[in-house]
Design a protein around this nucleic acid. Structure first.
Lengths: 235, 235
DNA sequence: AAGTGGTCTAGACCACTGT
DNA sequence: CAGTGGTCTAGACCACTTT
């Protein structure tokens, strides 16, 4: 019996009551001291259980008032964005990266804006890499990199190391922003992804910061018919 | 001084060293007892700080071995999926929902599959609702609902209550799954979203479960040019 | 004044890893 | 064996809320 730690049992006690409808959104749940009395656990154990349910968005707390079932437990559910190369390997498939372009270049205005450069008089490193899953193109990675952060970027062998891995090595990142959109493929992307021009593309724009400065801005283009993001959210 | 709780200071102590490069991915960090000696905090405080950094994906731990800087802190970053109506109102814009169809109907095979029905001999509730942001169509919500879970679904006034809100009221959900894809608009969707046919659409498929049974399957179609998902991930 | 959550401590026992 | 994380306890003080 009770293979589960106590605080997990407390969490189940709460979520079971929420699922059964006994505790409705907005309703007050037991206080920490009441859990101590009712379940015979220490207050720290009850505290940990409740705190983790708050993090999960199941409960909300107000000091001096009480703990409540969150009004909209489903308001914000996480979806995970991962590394394509790792994803492909996790599926048991063969991953190959083909660098199409690796250069230093003047960034176009909309890219320079991501680096906080007014007028782009600064050269950035630029790479375009096509990622294949079992010899089918899955992602076109169009990336601009801050030379200050990764001075040796142009010398990396991108058939063996992904840009992401290299950047992680030279500078741990402190902030990542993602924007996901559906767009129509332009001519280049369509060719690299081996699909019809104007066909739907799932575009992930990813900006990273390191030590207070923008490190990298990447546009990840995925063939709409061969790519999806998945997320599961429990309780 | 020290407006920050102790455990937050311990977390900063760790993340500062990771950001500065002093502690590289894969490196071992101090043990809990060492934090007690070096920083003068209790072991529970160090434990909480480290545990939260593990949850955040910054560290990884192996009992009996030690605590390490995660190899790929950026491997999986969360993106949030929220409620369209709430999103529109949060932007300070006007939201209007127009029910196009509310009925009981036989579910097509691919929908029935989501409900675990082999051959669809069961009638499900079906609604199609167009959500407008400032009188521009933003989302077409095509939803199938399990009548057992929400028996009064057909009587709800969907100009005032969103299907999601109604479902949350009648049965707290226990599991949500999302799949995000880029697809081409079909004729109906294109008309409802007031865009060209075959234009790119960001499609979110959302399945929910309640009390062990599938509650709802929704296809949320968004005009690619007017919709995006955003996510920020710190440290 | 009584209750609430927020935090913190100084112990404790356990299962597990390494040498 | 000593060291590690995983868990748990029984106290404590605080700022805050409501009555």
């Amino acid at each position: 019996m009770s293979a589960q730690p106590l605080y997990e049992q407390v969490k189940s006690y709460v979520t079971d009551r929420i699922r059964s409808g006994a505790w409705r959104p907005g309703a007050r749940v037991l206080s920490e001291h009441e859990f101590v009395r009712v379940l015979g656990v220490s207050r720290m154990t009850a505290n940990r259980a409740l705190r983790e349910l708050v993090t999960a968005g199941v409960l909300s707390r107000v000091a001096g008032l009480g703990t409540f079932v969150a009004d909209l437990p489903a308001a914000a559910q996480p979806l995970e964005i991962r590394n394509v190369a790792a994803d492909i390997r996790d599926r048991g498939h063969f991953h190959r990266a083909v660098p199409v372009r690796v250069e230093a270049a003047l960034a176009p205005a909309e890219v320079a804006a991501h680096f906080g450069l007014g007028i782009s008089e600064l050269k950035l490193f630029h790479s375009i890499i096509v990622h294949f899953e079992n010899e089918r193109p899955l992602e076109v990675e169009d990336r601009w990199v801050n030379p200050t952060v990764a001075p040796h970027y142009l010398n990396v062998d991108f058939t063996r190391v992904t840009p992401h891995e290299h950047l992680m090595q030279v500078a741990p990142l402190e902030r990542v922003e993602h924007v996901v959109r559906a767009v129509a493929a332009d001519a280049d992307i369509a060719e690299w992804l081996d699909m019809a021009s104007t066909a739907p593309v799932l575009l992930i724009e990813r900006t990273t910061w390191t030590q207070g400065q923008p490190a990298s801005f990447a546009r990840l283009h995925h063939a709409g018919s061969r790519f999806e993001l998945r997320g599961v959210y429990d309780v």
